[in-house]
Computed example of a mutant assay.
Amino acid sequence: MIETRPYAPGDGAAFETLYHGYLDHYRLGPPNGAETARLITLLDDGRHMSCLIAHDGGRPVGFATWALTFPAGRGTALFMKELFVDPQARGQGVGRHLMAGLVEIAKAEGCVRFDWQTDGDNAGAQAFYKAVGAPQVEKLSYRVPADTLADFRARLTRPSGRRP
């Protein structure tokens, strides 16, 4: 039976297991102990991002990270940053349970909407969201990787009227 609950201090080991599965699934390289520890510290401290973890019995099988954002029209929105389900648990309703849990959080927080994105080439995620009846909104996303932040900042601080 799938159960979801908000991340609480002490859930670090469950999150770490799933996070390592996430890195492996997306071929992002091996886990870095310092990075993982920082994420767990942020979650333990309740800073910046919150997490919902799904369990099947005692086994962690998925997570969804989220934050409240504003303004969202005339209110706040719950923004889901990531939804990950262990590949061995897919097709068992874990993603649906996580999304339903986020809907309950959004309602409890008085959010005016629930937003998320997926990469354009993530056909599996898109098929899942279509299957659950999520309306698609066309938006463009922008991303500045860490190794180009300094260059990007320099472009931002150039006097207007000067072109790169």
Rank of each mutant, 00 (worst) to 15 (best):
T148N: 14
G110M: 08
A37K: 05
S141K: 01
M1G: 08
M1D: 10
G91Y: 07
F84Y: 13
G161S: 03
G62P: 11
L39Q: 03
I2A: 03
G95A: 06
V112K: 06
G73L: 06
G124H: 04
Q136N: 06
V137S: 07
G120F: 02
F128N: 14
D45E: 15
A106L: 03
A108F: 07
M1L: 07
V112R: 13
D147E: 14
A54L: 09
W66R: 04
D121M: 04
F128L: 14
P6T: 05
A146S: 13
R158C: 13
P6F: 05
E104G: 14
C51M: 13
E35F: 10
A54T: 05
E109M: 12
V103I: 12
D44G: 07
F63H: 01
A154D: 13
N122R: 09
A72E: 09
L78G: 00
M99N: 02
G62H: 07
D147V: 10
E16A: 12
Y7N: 02
A77G: 09
D151A: 15
T36V: 14
S50R: 06
A72W: 06
Q88S: 05
T157H: 10
G58V: 01
T4C: 05
F114W: 10
P71A: 03
D147Y: 11
P9I: 13
G62K: 02
A13V: 07
L98I: 02
E82Y: 01
D147M: 05
H48M: 11
F114P: 00
Q126I: 03
V132R: 12
A123N: 03
Y19H: 15
R38K: 11
T148V: 13
R155F: 15
L23I: 05
Q136Y: 14
L140P: 08
F114D: 00
I40R: 02
A146I: 11
T118A: 03
S141W: 00
L102N: 01
L39K: 04
M1S: 10
F128H: 15
L18H: 07
Q126H: 01
L23S: 07
S141F: 08
C111P: 06
L78V: 01
K107F: 04
R153N: 13
P30T: 13
D151K: 15
R27K: 13
S160L: 14
P6R: 11
T65R: 00
R27N: 10
E109S: 12
L23Y: 08
A106C: 09
G124R: 02
A67S: 15
R74C: 00
L23M: 10
R47K: 14
Y26D: 08
Q92V: 08
F114C: 05
T36Q: 07
A127K: 15
P30Q: 15
R162K: 11
G58Y: 03
M1E: 04
H48I: 10
D11W: 04
D24S: 10
R5T: 06
F63I: 12
V85W: 09
A37M: 10
A72R: 09
P164H: 04
R153Q: 11
D115I: 02
G57N: 12
A54Q: 06
Y22S: 08
D147C: 09
V137H: 15
A37C: 08
P6I: 01
V137N: 04
E16K: 02
W116E: 00
L23K: 07
Q92S: 05
G21I: 00
A131G: 15
M80V: 09
G58F: 02
